[in-house]
Each structure stands twice: as structure tokens, then as C-alpha cells.
Design a protein around this nucleic acid. Structure first.
Lengths: 183, 183
DNA sequence: CAGCGGCTGCGGCGATTTGCCGCGTTTGCC
DNA sequence: GGCAAACGCGGCAAATCGCCGCAGCCGCTG
């Protein structure tokens, strides 16, 4: 596979605090024809985007400190045509809704491979009525969604959330430390 | 409690194929100042909306046959200012993303109480300001509600429910043997 | 400045709960 | 009758939960 002409490539800003993930996905996206620049935090991403607003952006949500969600309106302010994909290991419906409302074009839970990322980035049609899902959420999954929602309502305050949810703070902590359950 | 002046109330179209759910939520929303009309299927909803485009709409996704997602662009075509909330027991990130992209203003997984529905309906645009609100249900309560709903969807079949909920049948049995949690 | 109250992360320990085995029974259907 | 599926339930190891305590980090206030 030979490298495509650089002038043909679409610029893509990849923001993720996981170094290896960043590298692997960045390489894979580069191999698929994107001119990738990566950032490990919001500040760097902001700087890179200001210098040269990208055509595409892939943003991880759980960056250390502030949320990657903040980046969405900022990027769009710089260049409204930017196609932003949110990619996170802590996916929840609440953050998905917020991300799309803020202007992201898609939202993917990790793990996702490069092909899925590209597909989500270039997906043209606002899907017709194709996707409908067959089964209810598992109780664990529902619990996760609910917790995420309340946590957002409380601005990420764990103690307040635990109080409101009538559960022990320590228990909430432990639940949050785990990955969202699949299915 | 006396009925508010009808002319003051906001019109709301409630679409859900579950009769009792429709009735209960409809009453609760009426009590909160909405002029509610209900539909049990897409066709009826379409007819009602055409006759009188509502200001608000609450749509269940898993209607028998075609998806409630289809209703979103139709309602918005009739009246672009309609504030549409998607409410479903078969929530998924994929449908949430699609719903928001189609123009819904929010997306809630069932079970949700009337207060949550109203909050989601009137939530001011995607600002970070978190205004209110009443108490979210505890995780245990939520779990109980969800289990009851899925159980009902499966005609009381415990084994099937446990399978669908991805939990052990014995565990489901024990949970059901206990009292419904309060709070 | 010290003090105070709140949030956070985390180790540890006993009390519950869960997962998973098994068993015997009932129900419905071919 | 045979069979598949669902049911209720006991028991036991493993996981989780509730609750303690501790230390650190703010932000406020006297």
C-alpha cells in the first residue's frame, strides 16, 4: 500500500488521552487516507485546531479533567463543517444525546476498530428507519445508564449522586470504576 | 386540584402502544398542565398530528410494526417547532443518536416518571446549566420497574426474562420474591 | 494562618447477594 | 407416553455491598 498524495488527504484531529490507543488508531486512520494529527488533552487539541481547523475530528470523552464534550462547540465555532465523531469507553445514552445535540455527527462506544470509525465519520445519510433493536437493556446496563444520567445532572459530583441514588458512595465509586456493561 | 384553563395548556401528543402506560403517563402529564392526546400506533398519531400539530410529542420507539423514529421527521415537517421526546424501553445508543439527529430534543430510557419526562421536554437547549429538580429514582427502584416491564413483555415467563436481562434465573427469582423497593 | 466542611480515592472487613450447580415437579405439546 | 421448557428451592463458593476509617485536596472564614 503506497501513501496517498498528501494533498488529497482529509485532515483529521484525533484526541485521546490513551497514548497507545492514539497511536494505533492514528496509524490505522492514516493508512485509510486521513492526514492525522493527535492530541492527548483538550488544551493541545484546542491549539492544533485553532492553527489549522480539521475536516474531521475523533474525540474521546473521558479525558483527564474536563470533558471532551467541551471540544465539540469549540471546533464547530472554528469550522462549522467539521465532522466530529465522539468515541468513548464510558458510553452512555446521556452523553450520546448531549454530544449529538452539541453537533457531533456520530457517537461510538469503545472498543471500535478503525473501519467502524471511518464508517461513522463518512456516513452520509441520516439513517432512515433502519436501526431498531430487539431486546431490552440488561439490568446492569440500565443501571449504568441511569447512574450516568444522574451523575451528569449533578455535574459529576459523586457524593451527591450517591446520596440521590440512595446508595453508598463507596459502592458508586466501585461501579464507576468498572466498564459499562455490554448488551 | 382544578383543571387549568385549556387555552393556556400546551398541546402534547403521546404515542405508546401500551394502553395502561399511555393512560397513566397521559394523566400525569395532564395534571402537569399539558393538553394530552394519545395515540396507540403510528397511523393514528399521524392523523392526529396532521389535524392539529402539537407543540410537544412523546414517542415510544417500539411500536408494533414500524418504528416510532419515522414519526419524528413527519411531525417536524408538519411543525418544525415541535419538541419531540423519545421514550423507549428498548433504549440503545444507536437509536438515541439517530433520534437526536432526526430532530428529537431528548431521549429517555424507560422506566421514567412523569417528572423526568416533563424535565426532558422543557429542558432548555443544550446549556450546561442544570436547573432543577426532583429526585431520580433509586437504582433499586429502577431495576424493579425495569424487571416488571420486561417480565410483562414476556408474559410472566421468568426464564425468558432472565435470559433477556442477562441475569441468572435464580437471581431473578430471588429478586421477585422480595418486596418492591420503595424510594 | 489555622480551622472547618465538603468531595475524592482507596484499603479492609464482615454481611449480603449473586452465580451456578443440582434436584424434583408441573405444564404443554406432539 | 415421551419430551422440552418452565418452575420453585436448597446449598455453597465467589463476588459484591455497606460501612468503617484514613489521607489528600480544595474553598471558605474567622
Amino acid at each position: 500500500m503506497d501513501a496517498p498524495d498528501l494533498s488529497d488527504r482529509s485532515s483529521l484531529l484525533l484526541v485521546d488521552d490513551d497514548a497507545t490507543f492514539c497511536r494505533v488508531l492514528g496509524l490505522a486512520l492514516g493508512r485509510r487516507g486521513f492526514a492525522v494529527v493527535t492530541a492527548r488533552d483538550n488544551a493541545t487539541a484546542r491549539r492544533l485546531a485553532t492553527a489549522d481547523p480539521p475536516e474531521y475530528a475523533v474525540i474521546d470523552l473521558n479525558l483527564a479533567g474536563d470533558s471532551g464534550l467541551l471540544l465539540i462547540p469549540e471546533l464547530l465555532a472554528l469550522e462549522p463543517a467539521t465532522r466530529i465523531l465522539v468515541l468513548t469507553g464510558y458510553a452512555s445514552i446521556a452523553t450520546a444525546v448531549t454530544a449529538i445535540k452539541l453537533g457531533a455527527i456520530n457517537y461510538l462506544p469503545k472498543p471500535a476498530n478503525a473501519d467502524q470509525v471511518v464508517a461513522a465519520l463518512v456516513a452520509t445519510t441520516d439513517d432512515p428507519a433502519v436501526p431498531l433493536n430487539p431486546r431490552p437493556l440488561s439490568v446492569n446496563r440500565l443501571e449504568w445508564e441511569h447512574i450516568q444520567r444522574v451523575l451528569r445532572d449533578n455535574d459529576g459530583n459523586i457524593s451527591a449522586t450517591a446520596r440521590q441514588l440512595n446508595m453508598h458512595r463507596r459502592t458508586l465509586q466501585r461501579k464507576l470504576a468498572k466498564r459499562p456493561v455490554r448488551s
